[in-house]
Simulated scan of single mutants.
Amino acid sequence: MGVKGFVEGGIASIIAGCATHPLDLLKVRMQLQGETQAPKPKPSPSPAVQTLRPALAFHATSLSAPGSIHVPLQQPQVARAGLIAVGVRLVQQEGVAALFSGVSATVLRQTLYSTTRMGLYDILKKKWTDPNSGSLPLASKIAAGLVAGAVGAAVGNPADVAMVRMQADGRLPAAQRRNYKSVVDAISRMARQEGIPSLWRGSSLTINRAMLVTASQLASYDQIKEMILEKGVMRDGLGTHVTASFAAGFVAAVASNPVDVIKTRVMNMKVEPGAEPPYTGALDCALKTVRAEGPLALYKGFVPTISRQGPFTVALFVTLEQVRKLLKDF
């Protein structure tokens, strides 16, 4: 019975992950905008550059001041207007296929991370459910999500690092791109060139984010679905699954976005041999980000995050419910 939960969760997660991969890629690109440690592009008067990288598009009087106080003032507009601009620029410069950069890493990540967290959550939920009433308190659902998310993130971190790097590679100057051929090539090169520990770079952030996402996403889906059915608002069907899953996706996006921004930057940082790393850790990255770009920088990429988290969560749970029906006799 336990294995079945892993299989069902794995299938649903892989389908949902591949379907929403382009939105996840745009989220990563937006989270890296304005990063003070990012490679500086060659000066260009092109307005398209200013649209893509508003945090680096200073007025003439502030071109020599990367830490200019103008940066934080521009941040609120980035999240609202950046998604389409970043997407259009990406397609123009790198082609439509670039929207699926790193999709092999997404498949591996969902296979390792999501399969583990979904299966483990299912096991804990069944184990902690009251056998007499058949109910499970919200606090127990959240606890199950925290544990499942932590274990899943630890297992899937290498694929997560590879995915972030492959998605971010196209924004670097051609000479500085890593040009990983696949997720296997990315992981093997990281292990060979930067050491095995590099595969777990940012793992504390990944684990914290996964705990927040899993607890908020899975627990809120179960709770909202139960409330809808108990109050008789809708019957158990597609409408209930879509409503509960979209609400769960919104909750997960709000809870996890700040950790996700820091995780993306720490995982993507380039550490030159003998040089000091751009960030010494998660806290250092958070402080530098807030100082240079303002507190709202922690919600960079929120539009694509919710744009992806909503459809991903809907696809995840709708697919999961259908897979459960197909496998109910096994």
Rank of each mutant, 00 (worst) to 15 (best):
A12C: 06
I15F: 11
A16Y: 10
G17E: 15
G17T: 14
H21Y: 12
P22S: 00
L25T: 00
M30Q: 07
G34S: 09
V49D: 08
Q50E: 14
L52R: 13
T61V: 14
S68L: 00
V71I: 06
A81M: 12
A105T: 01
L112E: 00
S114G: 14
S114Y: 02
T115A: 12
K126H: 15
W128Q: 03
S133N: 06
V147D: 06
A153S: 15
A162E: 04
M163D: 15
R165M: 08
R165Y: 06
R178K: 10
S182F: 06
S188G: 11
R192L: 14
R201S: 01
R201E: 00
N208H: 07
L212F: 03
V213Q: 07
T214S: 11
T214Q: 13
A219M: 00
K225L: 02
M227F: 10
L238H: 02
A252N: 01
V254F: 06
D260V: 12
I262W: 04
T264P: 07
M269C: 02
K270G: 02
L283N: 09
G301D: 02
F302A: 08
F302Y: 12
V303K: 01
V303T: 08
P311R: 09
F312T: 03
T313G: 05
Q322S: 07
V323T: 09
V323D: 03
F330G: 04
